[in-house]
Computed example of a mutant assay.
Amino acid sequence: MIPKLHAVSTGKQSFEQLLKISRDIDPYVGAIHIREKERTARELEMLIEELKKDVHASKLIVNDRVDVAFASHVKGVHLAYHSLSVQGVKAHFQPLIVGKSVHSIKEAQEAEQTGVDYVIYGHVYPSKSKIGQTPRGLERLNQVVRSVKIPVIAIGGIMPCNVSEVLSTGAHGIAVMSGVFQDENPLQAAKEYDEQLRRWSDTYANTL
């Protein structure tokens, strides 16, 4: 089962801050992505081992570093365009679920054909991490969702107030970076995103 709320680290927190935030938000998020591009494999391994004392390994996803994800026995790995191939990861690291970042219908369809478990698509709204870049918007998100059968996770500028309109496109869930990890109160932010997802789920269930 692919989680609906993904919290993605930004690479801007200290080791201690990242640990504290991850521990605090654990009850309210489905997945915590360790996206720490500047850290070494050894640093990532140490970080994950500390996290696993309080955060279940089934919630941890490592970005790009397949070796670290596999050696640390976490839930999965999230790949970028420059990462190892999905086929290679699936063939040699079978316990891992594999996600991939995509930015178009074509990329989403190609990712699906390679056997990826889910894709993250964005950025949907203006984002602090994509300053000056035009957001792709809800209509394109909907087109991506309709073009594949695998779960599509939306990312980019998503706030609690617009969770419902993102999910109305058919997106499986949302991924948040600065909205949680750089918020003044990460715990409260995670609670608010979780509440909005639950409200959407309850409302949708009542319409069936």
Rank of each mutant, 00 (worst) to 15 (best):
R23Q: 13
A175H: 07
I34L: 15
A7I: 10
E107P: 01
N206W: 03
V119G: 03
Y193I: 01
V8F: 10
F70Y: 15
E112Y: 03
R199F: 09
E184I: 00
N63I: 08
R42T: 15
E107W: 00
K149W: 00
T207L: 13
P151C: 01
F15N: 13
L18H: 05
K106E: 14
S164F: 00
S104P: 06
Q109G: 00
R39D: 12
L187T: 08
V163H: 01
Q133V: 15
V62K: 08
W200C: 04
A171Q: 00
D117K: 06
L51T: 09
V176A: 05
H33A: 07
D24V: 01
G88Y: 13
H172K: 05
T169A: 05
I34S: 12
P186Y: 07
K20A: 13
P160Y: 06
E50M: 13
S104I: 08
V166F: 04
E45I: 14
V62S: 04
D54E: 14
S85A: 11
H103N: 10
H82L: 09
A111V: 09
E45S: 15
M1S: 10
H56D: 14
M1L: 04
T169C: 04
E184L: 09
L187F: 10
K130G: 03
H33D: 08
E192R: 14
S14Y: 13
L60D: 04
E45G: 09
V66K: 12
T207I: 11
E139M: 09
D64G: 09
G122A: 09
P27I: 04
G88V: 05
I97P: 00
F70G: 02
L47M: 15
E38C: 13
I97K: 01
S178E: 11
G170Y: 00
V124I: 15
T134Y: 07
E43L: 14
Q13H: 14
S201T: 09
A171L: 01
N206D: 10
S164K: 13
E192Y: 01
Q94A: 07
S14G: 13
L167G: 00
M1F: 02
A71V: 09
K4Q: 14
E139Q: 14
R140Y: 11
K106N: 08
L167A: 02
G132D: 12
R146Y: 01
I155M: 08
G11H: 12
V119N: 03
Q182M: 12
V62T: 07
A69M: 10
Q94N: 00
V74M: 03
R146Q: 15
M177E: 02
S72T: 12
Q13C: 14
